[in-house]
Design a protein around this nucleic acid. Structure first.
Lengths: 117, 117
DNA sequence: CGGAATCCGGCCCGATACTG
DNA sequence: CAGTATCGGGCCGGATTCCG
């Protein structure tokens, strides 16, 4: 008879998991883009509109970050049949799962600023 | 008569708070150092010992990261009266507060790796 | 032993120009 | 409108050397 033991993640696996998380949360733009999309759910969020409203981002960075978010299943990309074509971006259901994580970062960060001031 | 309204953190304040958190959690070494210290609470954790056991870190980085952690009240630095002198480092009570945050990063990261594989 | 100083490479990111 | 291409700066982090 086999004895099944639930394995804890090893320290190294945990560090990999943290790195995975920070790859999404750690950059300069991904979170800003996702927060913008999340605050404008009912609108058509075209590339140009996102670039206008996510302050300071260049087309190159926006393109690159959106592609990475799409690969990570956090946002969807939809080419609209307009002239000229427009492309809409939106958060996925799964993408919403980042926000509870960022919320803990916000809380710790706010508390930390109080602590060290 | 003044009306006092409890302010929510603005979007910009939240982004600052996240940046503050990532300044601690986002680098390559701070978390590894803190995890090591936390797993060896009852030992004397000298500079050299930490450098041996936190795999791959250079003296320059270890020195710099420890200084930043100390400034942020997350670790203590204690010069011991030995010949030659040794210096001990340890997590502060407050420093322990980072671990619940990293735990959420671990959980999201593990789940995310499942999701996109 | 516990650092500081210096040099250096990679890569994240910005600015600008161009394309379908 | 929705991107790509190219150039380049800044900064994080590595390697090496030196000091009290």
């Amino acid at each position: 008879m086999e004895i099944s033991i639930k394995q804890e993640a090893t320290c190294e696996q945990e560090l990999v998991a943290i790195r995975d998380s920070l790859e999404i949360l750690g950059g300069k733009w991904k979170l800003r883009i996702m927060r913008y999309l999340n605050n404008h759910i009912d609108e058509k969020n075209t590339f140009k509109k996102i670039q206008r409203e996510v302050e300071g981002i260049s087309a190159k960075m926006l393109s690159k970050e959106l592609r990475e978010l799409e690969i990570n299943l956090l946002v969807t990309r939809t080419v609209m049949d307009t002239r000229p074509i427009t492309v809409n971006y939106a958060m996925t259901e799964y993408g919403l799962s980042v926000f509870p994580v960022t919320e803990t970062l916000v809380e710790w960060g706010l508390n930390h600023r109080e602590k060290i001031k």
